[in-house]
Amino acid sequence: MPSWDERFRDGDYPRNPDPSPVLRRYVDSFPDGRALDVATGTGRNAVFLAEAGYRVDGIDRSREGLQIARQNAIDRGVADRTEWIRADVPTYAFPESTYDVIAISFYRAVDRFPDIKAALAPGGALFVQHHLRSSEDLRSGPSGDRYRYGANELLRDCLDLTVLYYDERTETRADGRSGAVVRLVARNSTGQRQSYPRVDPFECETGD
Rank of each mutant, 00 (worst) to 15 (best):
L126F: 15
P19C: 08
I85P: 02
G150N: 04
V101G: 03
S135R: 14
T98G: 03
D111R: 14
P17T: 11
I102K: 05
L132G: 06
R177V: 10
F8K: 00
G41C: 06
D12T: 04
C158L: 11
L138F: 08
R177A: 14
F202V: 05
G179W: 12
R169A: 13
R24E: 13
H131T: 00
P197S: 12
S29Q: 06
R139H: 09
L164G: 02
R173Y: 06
D32R: 15
M1K: 09
R76S: 14
L184Q: 13
G58F: 05
R169V: 09
S195N: 09
K117T: 10
Y54C: 09
D18M: 14
Y92G: 03
I59A: 02
H131M: 02
G41W: 03
S134V: 07
H131K: 02
A79E: 15
S62V: 00
I102S: 06
E136H: 12
I59Y: 02
S29N: 05
S97F: 04
R177P: 02
A103P: 03
F94R: 00
R183N: 01
E168W: 05
G191A: 09
R198W: 07
A121W: 13
A35W: 01
V56G: 04
R193G: 10
A87K: 01
A186L: 14
A73S: 12
R148C: 02
A119M: 04
R169G: 03
V101E: 04
H131L: 01
V182K: 01
S140C: 13
F94T: 02
V38M: 10
L154M: 14
R86C: 05
I68C: 01
Y92I: 07
A121R: 15
R34Q: 03
I116R: 14
E83W: 01
R34L: 07
M1Q: 11
R173P: 04
P122L: 11
A79K: 10
E171H: 07
D12K: 08
E136M: 13
R55S: 13
R177E: 14
S178N: 11
F30Y: 10
V182Y: 05
V110M: 01
G33S: 11
R63S: 12
I104S: 00
L164Q: 13
E96A: 15
L132M: 11
R173S: 15
R7H: 01
S62P: 00
R112S: 10
R156L: 12
L161C: 08
V101I: 07
P142E: 07
I116A: 10
N72Q: 09
F202Y: 13
R25Q: 12
E203M: 08
I68Y: 07
A93D: 15
R34I: 12
L120C: 07
R187I: 08
L126A: 11
R61Y: 09
I74A: 09
T82K: 02
R133V: 15
D137M: 04
D115Q: 11
V47R: 05
Y149E: 01
A119W: 03
G176Y: 13
